[in-house]
Simulated scan of single mutants.
Amino acid sequence: MGAPFDTGVTARPGARFGPGGIRQGSRRIAADAAWDIYTGENVFLDWAKIVDCGDAPLTFLDNTVALKQLDAAHKIASGRSTSTRKYPTPRIVTLGGDHTTTLSALRSTYRNWGQVSVIHFDSHIDTWDPKVLGGGISHYAGVNHGTFLHLAHEEGLIRNTSIHAGIRAPVMRPKGDVRNDIRCGFDMVKARDIDRIGVSGITGKLKRRVAGSRVYISVDIDVLDPAFAPATGTAEVGGWTTRELLSILDGLRGLEVIGADVVEVAPIYDNPGETTLLAAAEVVHSLLGLIVHNPVNSG
């Protein structure tokens, strides 16, 4: 489901066009020719029925109204009956939109499954206190793509067994932001950790952190280095390659993934080769695989 929303950004806008851009990047992924060279599986021809619900109809003129509309869209989509009695509740992969949209997705997963552990791929922590990021100007200003995880914690949507992956951006308060991040239930894997412990070390740490819980995976495309994903609102140098990210995602097989998203794709900043759009579409492909092949579904 698309979430065309980008009025919660603190840098470059444009992610409202992300859902269409990701779909455009997926044109080369044909359902009858998408056999994974590594696993020999085709997620589109497995047991699950995968449906594109289109974009949620959101206003661009009022953040508070738009997020209520997105809450409603998630409630409607997740309230549909599936054709599989064993798994009656649809599992949604959201195409963003800026990262604020994940708050609506987490509200939806909480309503259907209770608290979840979040694996948050990003260059930024996104647990900033709204009083710090938003300036305390208004409640409206405090709900944004850098505070949504703080708000999710305050609303009781997520477990204290969540974790960031790929973090490298500076914080605003050297001690206070990290303390608040821990209070919000997050551990952290930094981008350069991959140089020391490798892909398997990263996946091992992520899986140990969320073990025994239902998992929501949120991928901000800026977890990738701008060389691999220039089309994003708040790019940070020193990130992972597309191959590294895909390998890490593949390494998360075995988790009970009940929802996911790919956000902060702003097509206007991409190059003619559609580098970011292709990467984002492939990440969505990987996330679908995690959902379809998780142990609850395969059992």
Rank of each mutant, 00 (worst) to 15 (best):
H74V: 01
S26F: 03
R12C: 04
I29H: 07
T39D: 11
G14F: 02
S78F: 00
R16S: 14
A66P: 13
R16T: 05
Q69D: 11
A56D: 10
V51A: 01
A48Q: 03
N63W: 01
L67A: 08
G25K: 08
T59E: 10
A34M: 07
G21P: 04
G18D: 11
G25P: 10
L61N: 15
A33E: 07
A30F: 04
K49L: 06
Q24P: 00
T10G: 15
T82E: 02
V51Q: 06
D46K: 03
R12K: 15
V65F: 09
L61Q: 15
G40E: 08
T10M: 15
D52W: 03
L61A: 15
R27Y: 08
L67Q: 15
W47R: 13
R23S: 05
T82S: 09
I29E: 08
D46W: 06
G21K: 05
L67S: 10
V43Y: 00
A11P: 01
N63E: 13
A77N: 04
A31Q: 05
G54C: 10
I29G: 09
E41G: 01
D62V: 11
D55R: 06
R12V: 07
K75Q: 10
G79C: 02
Q24W: 07
S26H: 05
I76R: 12
K68P: 01
T10N: 15
K68Y: 05
A15P: 11
G54K: 06
K68N: 13
P13W: 10
L67I: 14
V51M: 01
T39W: 03
L58K: 12
A72M: 07
Q69R: 13
P57S: 13
A77E: 06
D71M: 09
R80A: 09
G54S: 08
V51L: 05
T39M: 04
I37C: 08
T82Y: 00
T59A: 10
F60H: 15
S26C: 07
R16C: 09
D32C: 00
I76V: 14
S78M: 10
G20V: 06
L58G: 10
R12W: 05
I76C: 02
A33N: 12
I29A: 08
D36K: 07
G21H: 07
Q69G: 07
A11D: 13
I50C: 01
T82N: 03
G79K: 01
K68G: 12
A56F: 01
A34V: 04
L45A: 07
R80T: 03
W47N: 06
F17L: 14
Q24C: 05
P13N: 12
A31I: 07
A15V: 09
H74F: 14
D55P: 03
G54F: 06
R80N: 03
S26M: 15
E41Y: 07
T10H: 14
T39V: 02
A73R: 08
D52V: 05
V51T: 13
H74D: 01
A56Y: 02
I76K: 14
R27T: 12
F17S: 09
D62S: 14
